[in-house]
C-alpha cells in the first residue's frame, strides 16, 4: 500500500473509532419497535441464495461469450448473444436486491448470505458454475463434437437451456417457500407472501419461460440446419443471424 493508501486507511480507522457514538449506525432504533417488515426469514435467505445463482449464471454466460470471441472460433453473433445474456442475469440479481430493499431487508445481519459471498471464487469458477449444479458435461467450453453432428454453437445453446431450466426450477422452489412459510414461534400460523410470489411469477417466471422458449427455438433451428448442411456451415450461418 502506498503512502496515500496508508493515510486513507488511518483516517478511516480514526474516523470509525471516533464516530461510533455520533454516527447513526443503528437507524432502526428510531422506529420505537414499530415492526413493518413482514418478509419471513427462510424466504429472505432463499432469495439471497437465488441472487448468488443469478450471478453465477451471469459469469457462466460470460465464459461462453469469451469462448465465441476467440479468433480461432470466430462467432461474433454467439458472442454477442451470450454477452447480452450475462448482463441480463446480472440485472436479475439487481432486481432481486431492489425487491429485498423495498421489503425492508437490511443487509447487516450475520445470517445474510449476501454479506459473505466469496466473489473471487465465483469469478474463478465462471466456467464450471458449480452453484448451479449443472453436472460435469456442462462445465466446460462448448467445443464442437468430433462426429460433426454437434457444433460448438449447438453445444453452447444446450448449456444455456440447461442453465435456464435450473434457474427456473430454483425460482419455482423459491415461490413455494415464500407462499407457505411457517411463522416462527407460532406453530399453526403460515405466512403467504402474496406480493413476492406474484412478483416472482409475473416478472421472473415470465422472463424465464420466454427465454427458454427462445433458446429452444434456436436449438431446434440450428439442429435442423446441421442435419441438412453440416455443423460448420450451419454454425457459420446461424452465427450471422445472431449478429
Amino acid at each position: 500500500m502506498n503512502k496515500f493508501g496508508i493515510l486513507v486507511a488511518f483516517a478511516v480507522c480514526c474516523f470509525v473509532s471516533v464516530s461510533a457514538d455520533t454516527c447513526d449506525l443503528t437507524a432502526k432504533d428510531h422506529f420505537n419497535n414499530v415492526e413493518f417488515v413482514d418478509m419471513k426469514r427462510k424466504c429472505i435467505l432463499e432469495t439471497e441464495d437465488q441472487i448468488k445463482k443469478e450471478i453465477t449464471a451471469s459469469l457462466k454466460y460470460l465464459s461462453l461469450a469469451a469462448y465465441f470471441s476467440r479468433d480461432d472460433v470466430n462467432r461474433p453473433g454467439y458472442a454477442k448473444f451470450f454477452f447480452d445474456a450475462a448482463s441480463e442475469e446480472r440485472e436479475h440479481a439487481k432486481k432481486l436486491i431492489e425487491y429485498l430493499q423495498m421489503r425492508g431487508r437490511y443487509f447487516d445481519l450475520e445470517d445474510s448470505a449476501i454479506s459473505n459471498i466469496n466473489i473471487g471464487s465465483l469469478v474463478k469458477g465462471s466456467e464450471k458454475a458449480e452453484l448451479l449444479s449443472l453436472g460435469s458435461e456442462w462445465m466446460k467450453a462448448p467445443e464442437a463434437s468430433k462426429n460433426k453432428e454437434v457444433s460448438a454453437g449447438l453445444n453452447a445453446l444446450r448449456t444455456a437451456l440447461k442453465m435456464e431450466a435450473v434457474v427456473t426450477g430454483s425460482i419455482r422452489n423459491l415461490i413455494a417457500t415464500c407462499e407457505a412459510e411457517q411463522v416462527e414461534g407460532k406453530k399453526n400460523e403460515i405466512f403467504n407472501d402474496y406480493h413476492f410470489a406474484d412478483y416472482l411469477t409475473g416478472d421472473f417466471l415470465s422472463e424465464q419461460y420466454q427465454g427458454k422458449r427462445d433458446i429452444a427455438g434456436k436449438i431446434s433451428t440450428l439442429g435442423k440446419m446441421i442435419r441438412d448442411n453440416g455443423a460448420e456451415l450451419a454454425d457459420y450461418l446461424f452465427d450471422k443471424s445472431l449478429q
Binding site: 474516523f15 470509525v16 464516530s19 454516527c23 449506525l25 459469469l59 465464459s63 469469451a66 469462448y67 470471441s69 476467440r70 479468433d71 443487509f107 447487516d108 445474510s112 449476501i114 454479506s115 459473505n116 459471498i117 466469496n118 466473489i119 473471487g120 471464487s121 469469478v123 474463478k124 469458477g125 465462471s126 466456467e127
Partner: peptide, 25 residues
C-alpha cells in the same frame, strides 16, 4: 480476443479472496 489470445478466468491472489462486504459507513 482481438489479439489472438483466449480469455481465461485466472485471478491473482488478492482478487481471489475478495468478499462482499457487510455493514460499512
Amino acid at each position: 480476443t482481438k489479439r489472438g489470445f483466449s480469455h481465461k478466468f485466472i485471478l491473482n491472489k488478492e482478487t481471489a479472496t475478495i468478499m462482499s462486504s457487510a455493514n460499512v459507513t
